[in-house]
Nucleic acid binder design. Structure first.
Lengths: 126, 126
DNA sequence: CAGGATCCTTGAGGATACTG
DNA sequence: CAGTATCCTCAAGGATCCTG
């Protein structure tokens, strides 16, 4: 297995690295909560508590966790107002907004095919 | 809580039902493996074993499980050839292909912002 | 070959309490 | 209010074995 690293050109290695990174990012982002958070943010700026109310069913922990992940990947910007009590606001960055558009499309898809899917489920139910 | 069902018109109830269904479908579909399977299928027809090779890292169990789910929702068609050994082929249906387009967009997004994200991660690393 | 069934482990994720 | 830390539970998911 170790010998594998000697196969292929350096360019190949770069491609593999980019691929594995892309894969990692995809895995980060392709999850229910992350996508729902992005969708909820939209063009708005929301506080932590507003976001928790907006994203129905999300737990305190999941919200924090996903927000950190999204921040780390540069999809949301986190702005802390040093007041008391603290006020923390989240906004989509440009990459975040770009991703949001594809999420929108996915939501549209869901609604467009609601009927198909419901019917299919009934058929399958047998 | 039970009294809740008396509030709102029947039309409201329909909307809520559709929403919860949409939400459920979204949760089904917005997961790593489902999206990777859809992406792997693309325009092709693949056998179970081909799919397992194609979707890197997926386990036997996850593959079966997600394929069943996708079939149930009518996103993939499952065709069994009654030969021995059996031959089972999976193909995206029309709704499946429609969803695939948004997945494609998501993949494009991933690659377009690879740099941004990598940079953001380094910054965040602190 | 496709895929169900079973067992087993790990970690996702909830609830709660505590801090700045 | 926002966030971290801790504990605890249950289910996601892997490995393995078995069948048509």
């Amino acid at each position: 297995m170790v010998t594998k690293q000697f196969k292929g050109s350096p360019a190949d290695a770069d491609l593999r690295r980019a691929d594995s990174l892309a894969r990692e990012i995809f895995s980060d982002v392709a999850n229910k909560w992350a996508l729902l958070i992005i969708e909820a943010l939209g063009e708005r700026t929301l506080r932590f508590s507003e976001l928790r109310d907006e994203v129905e069913g999300v737990s305190h922990k999941m919200l924090t966790q996903n927000l950190r992940m999204l921040e780390r990947n540069g999809l949301v910007e986190r702005k802390v107002h040093p007041t008391v009590p603290p006020r923390v606001e989240y906004t989509l960055t440009e990459p975040g907004r770009a991703l949001r558009e594809t999420v929108d499309t996915m939501c549209d898809w869901t609604h467009r095919y609601l009927g198909h899917i419901e019917a299919s489920r009934r058929r399958f139910g047998a």
